[in-house]
Simulated assay, not measured.
Amino acid sequence: MSQVPAELKYNDSHEWVRLEADGTVTVGITAHAQEALGDVVFVETPEVGRELSAGSSAGVVESVKAASDIYSPIDGAVLATNPALEGEPELVNSDPYGEGWMFRLQPANPAQINDMLDAAAYSDLIGA
């Protein structure tokens, strides 16, 4: 059964967002998503500086089973990507809410985070 950390926000395409102290957000895919994908073998993250719109494709996660788009949960500019994923894409499987994060955004409209699912609503969505 997937864990759903209470301090994060979620969207229905299985990305999570953590609001950082400096006002930026960290984005990754949920434990539920990585379990469905299986063993992750490659992660393509967005270019630093790229402007993303909520719901737009930001990258791709490839596993032994399938390739799946990563979607930007909110509007914003990419500030950083996780360099560890280049050599260790399996971090998405072993630590999806920590070392397996995908990218960081400077939100264009931080209020969009309030429209995302909380842990209880996401748990209901995935039947957890």
Rank of each mutant, 00 (worst) to 15 (best):
P110E: 00
V27P: 10
E62G: 06
G87V: 04
G59T: 12
E62C: 09
W101H: 03
E88S: 11
I113F: 02
N109M: 03
A108C: 02
G98P: 12
A128Q: 04
G98D: 06
M1T: 12
G55Q: 10
A111W: 00
D95R: 01
E62A: 09
E44R: 04
V43W: 09
E7Q: 12
F42K: 06
G127Y: 02
R18V: 12
V64M: 08
G76E: 07
E47K: 10
T26M: 07
A121S: 06
N11P: 00
E88N: 10
N11F: 08
E90Y: 02
Y97Q: 05
A80E: 14
L19R: 13
G23E: 12
E44N: 07
D39T: 13
E47Q: 14
E90K: 07
V64D: 11
D39W: 08
R50Q: 15
D115E: 10
P96S: 00
Y97N: 05
N114H: 02
S57L: 04
G87T: 06
V60L: 11
N114W: 00
S63Y: 09
Q3T: 15
S63N: 11
V17G: 02
R50G: 12
A21S: 15
A67Q: 11
V43S: 11
E20P: 08
S57G: 12
I29M: 07
D118P: 03
E62R: 06
L37T: 12
I29H: 07
A80K: 11
A80Q: 13
E86I: 08
S123L: 01
L125R: 01
I29W: 05
E15G: 10
I74R: 00
S13M: 05
V61I: 15
E62M: 08
R104E: 13
S2A: 14
V48E: 13
S72E: 08
M102I: 15
D124F: 01
E15W: 09
L125K: 02
E86C: 01
E99S: 06
S123T: 13
S56L: 06
G49K: 10
P96R: 05
I113A: 02
V92D: 03
D115N: 05
D22P: 14
M116V: 08
R18I: 11
T30P: 07
N93Q: 04
A77V: 15
